[in-house]
Design a protein around this nucleic acid. Structure first.
Length: 274
DNA sequence: CAGGTAGCCTGTTAGC
DNA sequence: TGCTAACAGGCTACCT
């Protein structure tokens, strides 16, 4: 479900209600959600801890807790974190609930059950492989055209595949990869190593512009995504190619094409993306 | 060893 | 209208 703009919006919308509050009790209804430690340990370790900070790293959400623990959540396709008044009845897809001080609860919903929770001591965070493997954040200031160009050199395969590789840069998913490449006039199957300096420049600009505008629009809601207050995003209105097969390209009016590779769809303009 | 695919799940929608 | 198959925003493990 959520890519960088959605995760960023979830973190910023949850922060006012969550940061500085204590978790009174944690309940887990889908045991496999919690990858470590065991569910009883997980609940016991969370109870009584204050949330000191909420952060995003790529598509991961980090709850920094007092006592030097950190809860790492990945929402995968359909995970949602939503603040609700204490005692709200769980829905069909409510997989966990954290009761907070102050009459609030944080609910985790996940239709497809792909999401993951890891509760770690801060000291193990650096060696936590899924985070350690991530490349620079897609919105990190240090991700300059020069760095992008250096990292693209020697990369095999198509540019879209590379953009989706979280160890290359962290935060881009299928929707925004399509949009970014359209804005940069680059075909999704162009060999990543063949991009000219001018194209890399356009790619770096598109990456920043698309992701920043999507953050301002509070993310894209195609089906399930909502922010921490249960509200949908607005960037779906601004999608130029993703999900628009057969519709005219907004630049040149040629019908948008769709291809499938590795089980995922790519949407692009066959005329103005090279 | 790089590239492709199945698997994890459930729900919605497109197509017959 | 009703059934079936394809597809969905992510990531990993395994196969060729």
């Amino acid at each position: 479900m959520p890519e960088l703009p959605e995760v960023e919006t979830i973190v910023s919308s949850l922060s006012p209600g969550v940061v500085g509050r204590r978790i009174v009790e944690a309940r887990v209804f889908l045991p496999k959600l919690v990858r470590e430690p065991s569910v009883p340990e997980f609940c016991a370790l969370l109870a009584g801890r204050e949330v000191r900070a909420l952060r995003r790293r790529g598509k991961y959400i980090l709850f920094h807790l007092d006592g030097e623990y950190v809860l790492v959540i990945h929402l995968r396709m359909t995970g949602q974190l939503v603040l609700a008044p204490a005692g709200s009845p769980p829905g069909r897809h409510t997989r966990a609930v954290f009761h907070l001080e102050g009459g609030l609860e944080l609910q985790y919903h996940d239709l497809r059950q792909f999401g993951t929770f890891h509760l770690l001591p801060c000291s193990s965070l650096a060696s936590f492989a899924p985070l350690a493997r991530l490349g620079p954040d897609a919105l990190a200031p240090e991700l300059t055209p020069a760095l992008l160009e250096r990292r693209l050199k020697g990369r095999r395969g198509g540019i879209k595949k590379v953009l989706l590789d979280q160890s290359f840069i962290a935060g881009v998913g299928n929707i925004y990869a399509d949009e970014i490449l359209w804005h940069a006039f680059i075909h999704p199957e162009r060999a990543a190593s063949s991009l000219t300096p001018g194209e890399v420049e356009r790619l770096a600009a598109a990456l920043r512009e698309v992701l920043e505008e999507a953050v301002r629009e509070r993310g894209t809601t195609l089906r399930d995504y909502v922010d921490g207050n249960g509200r949908p995003g607005g960037y779906q209105r601004l999608l130029r190619v993703h999900g628009r097969e057969g519709e005219p390209c907004p630049r040149c009016a040629v019908p948008i094409a769709r291809t499938r590779t590795a089980g995922r769809s790519s949407y692009f303009c066959p005329r103005c993306q090279h």
